[in-house]
Deep mutational scan, measured.
Amino acid sequence: MQIFVKTLTGKTITLEVEPSDTIENVKAKIQDKEGIPPDQQRLIFAGKQLEDGRTLSDYNIQKDSTLHLVLR
């Protein structure tokens, strides 16, 4: 499925993911596309910070959802 990741600069990254993918996995995909190390990434969805060990389906993230990427 496709999800979107919006950065603070207003750029939107499109990712191909599975509901069973972990947040860690998603961060690795963002690193592949953007070169941002996962340890600098914070992903936010519906006002919640997403934890590495959980999956997209744990957070009820569905296709065409938009996550927000904050760098630390």
Rank of each mutant, 00 (worst) to 15 (best):
S20W: 13
K29S: 08
D52A: 02
K29F: 03
F4V: 04
L8A: 15
N60P: 04
S65Q: 05
E18T: 10
T14A: 04
Q41A: 03
I36H: 06
G47W: 03
I61D: 00
E18M: 11
N60T: 13
E24K: 06
V17T: 07
L67S: 01
D32E: 08
L43D: 00
D58M: 06
D58T: 10
I36R: 07
K11N: 14
L56H: 00
T22M: 15
K48W: 13
L8P: 10
S65N: 13
G53Y: 11
P37N: 10
T9D: 06
V70A: 07
M1Y: 05
A28E: 07
P37T: 06
A28Y: 04
V5L: 09
Q40R: 03
K29G: 11
K33S: 14
M1A: 02
V26H: 00
D32N: 03
N60I: 04
T14G: 15
D39H: 04
V70P: 02
R72N: 14
P37R: 10
L56D: 00
I30D: 00
S57L: 06
I61S: 01
P38K: 15
K6N: 15
S20A: 15
Q40S: 12
L67K: 01
Q41H: 14
N60S: 11
H68Q: 09
Q49H: 13
Q31L: 07
N60W: 04
L71Q: 04
Q49M: 07
L50S: 01
Y59V: 05
G10W: 02
I23F: 06
Q62I: 13
Q62D: 04
D32Y: 05
L56R: 00
R72A: 12
N25K: 14
A28Q: 15
F45W: 05
L71N: 14
E24G: 07
S20Y: 09
N60D: 06
I13A: 03
R72F: 04
L8N: 04
D64A: 14
S65F: 04
V5P: 00
N25V: 13
Y59K: 01
T7G: 14
L15F: 13
S20E: 01
V17Q: 11
T22N: 03
T12I: 09
V70T: 12
H68A: 14
E51D: 10
F4Q: 05
Q49Y: 08
K6Q: 13
V26A: 13
H68S: 12
I61A: 06
A28S: 11
Q40E: 12
R54W: 10
F4N: 08
E34V: 03
R54D: 08
G53A: 11
K48N: 04
K48I: 14
G10H: 03
L69M: 05
Q31W: 10
D39F: 08
F4H: 13
P38L: 13
I44D: 12
I13L: 07
Q62A: 11
T14W: 06
K48R: 05
K33R: 14
A46I: 05
D21K: 02
I61L: 08
R72T: 10
T66L: 11
Q31D: 09
Q41F: 10
K27A: 13
G35D: 04
R54S: 11
Q2A: 11
L71G: 09
R72V: 06
K33T: 11
I3D: 00
L56F: 01
K48Y: 12
Q62F: 07
Q49F: 03
F45E: 04
L69W: 05
L56A: 02
D52L: 03
G35F: 09
L15D: 00
V26E: 00
T22G: 08
K6V: 14
D64T: 02
V17H: 13
A46V: 12
N60V: 08
E34P: 02
L50V: 05
D58F: 15
T22K: 06
Q49E: 09
A46T: 09
K6A: 12
R54H: 09
L69Y: 04
I3S: 00
D52S: 04
T9Y: 06
K27H: 12
I13F: 06
G53D: 02
K33V: 11
Q31Y: 08
T14Y: 14
K33W: 14
I61E: 00
K6I: 14
F4S: 14
Q40D: 14
L15P: 00
K63I: 08
T55D: 07
S20M: 08
G47A: 02
F4T: 05
L56T: 05
G47D: 13
H68M: 13
I3N: 00
K6Y: 14
A28H: 05
V70M: 11
T14Q: 04
L43V: 05
T12G: 10
G53E: 10
D32K: 09
L15T: 02
G35R: 03
V26R: 00
E18W: 11
P19F: 06
E51M: 04
E34K: 01
K27L: 15
P38Y: 09
P19W: 10
L8G: 05
I30A: 05
R72Y: 15
V26T: 09
